[in-house]
């Protein structure tokens, strides 16, 4: 195995591990740890394929910095009212687009299945993560995660991050 191939594989495995940890944090309802997957000034946005393709900037969720992400979670825990539900994420088709000094750009597909307290399960949405990942003290962190929902339709509401 050449060194380059080994490096590529090693990077891919590290990114896959980051994503696995990320979705398991959400799916396990450990949301207080969710902002830690980002850099301190990391950006998290959720938009639709429609808005993105029309070049329209509004997002469903727009957090700049861990503080805003933490606010989302504490609002969810203490203020927002909704029927209890859980997510199960599937991630696939990780593609490393580029590796540059300001980070590694990747895209990957996701699907989120939502299960309500009564057992009703549905495909909540699927789409694509568009990410910029940086190394922070030897740990990979999300500097920018753009969640592009395939469907603009949100069933009922969106409160748990994707």
């Amino acid at each position: 195995m050449t060194t380059t191939l080994a490096n590529d594989l090693s990077l891919r495995l590290r990114i896959e591990a980051l994503f696995a940890d990320y979705v398991q944090c959400i799916d396990d309802d450990a949301l207080e740890q969710w902002p830690d997957f980002f850099t301190g000034d990391g950006v998290y946005r959720v938009t639709s394929r429609e808005n993105l393709s029309l070049g329209l900037p509004v997002c469903l969720v727009y957090c700049e910095g861990r503080g805003m992400m933490a606010d989302r979670i504490s609002a969810m825990r203490t203020a927002n009212i909704f029927e209890p539900h859980t997510y199960n994420h599937s991630i696939s088709a990780l593609k490393i687009l580029s590796v540059a000094v300001d980070g590694i750009r990747t895209q990957s597909n996701f699907a989120v299945f939502r299960t309500m307290a009564d057992g009703n399960m549905s495909l909540f949405n699927c789409g694509r993560y568009m990410d910029r990942i940086v190394e922070d003290n030897g740990v990979l962190k999300l500097a920018d995660r753009l969640v592009v929902l395939e469907s603009r339709r949100i069933d009922t509401l969106l409160v748990i991050p994707i």
């Binding site: 029309l54 329209l56 997002c59 603009r152 339709r153 949100i154 069933d155």
Partner: peptide, 8 residues
């Protein structure tokens, strides 16, 4: 227009 949302 800054964007659209749809809520079912």
């Amino acid at each position: 227009v800054l964007g659209y949302h749809s809520q079912v």
